[in-house]
Amino acid sequence: MIDKILSTPENEFLEISGTIFTIRDQSCKFLAEYIKKKKNPFKDENLIFFFAGPTPGFENGNGSIGPTTSSRMVPFFEMLISLGAKALIGKGDVGIKGKDILEKSNVSYLSAFGGAGAYYGKTVEKMETFLFPELGPEAIYKIEVSGFPAIKIY
């Protein structure tokens, strides 16, 4: 999947299928503390992170999920890349600083469609809590998606 993302031209639509990890404000903070004391919790190398906080309905078969604003996560981009991120998905612009970090490391940034929670919810085939269950919607979830649409920005 990573190869397909990296080779997609900028400003093009693409559909993602495979494993992605959700993360957002609080879980970024928690993860930064976590890796000070423990090893990289992610086993894979080509990681895709999705800045999002799902509704609890996935346990009931009717969950929704959608992107949150990526610019708030820029301070954590380098940490995510050091843990193996090859693509980040969120909403909106990441600013000059965010773009610089991504370009230096050859990491892609994709913009998903804000507020299309039900649409994205239907693309989720499997979801499990990966880290920080105490954070509820802000926990890190490992999800399997199929036909998840986005626009490649960088």
């Binding site: 509704t55 969950g63 999920i65 299309a116 929670g117 039900a118 239907k122």
Partner: peptide, 10 residues
């Protein structure tokens, strides 16, 4: 159709 919240931010 699937009784999902329109947006994850409820």
């Amino acid at each position: 159709e699937t009784n999902r919240p329109l947006c994850q931010d409820c």
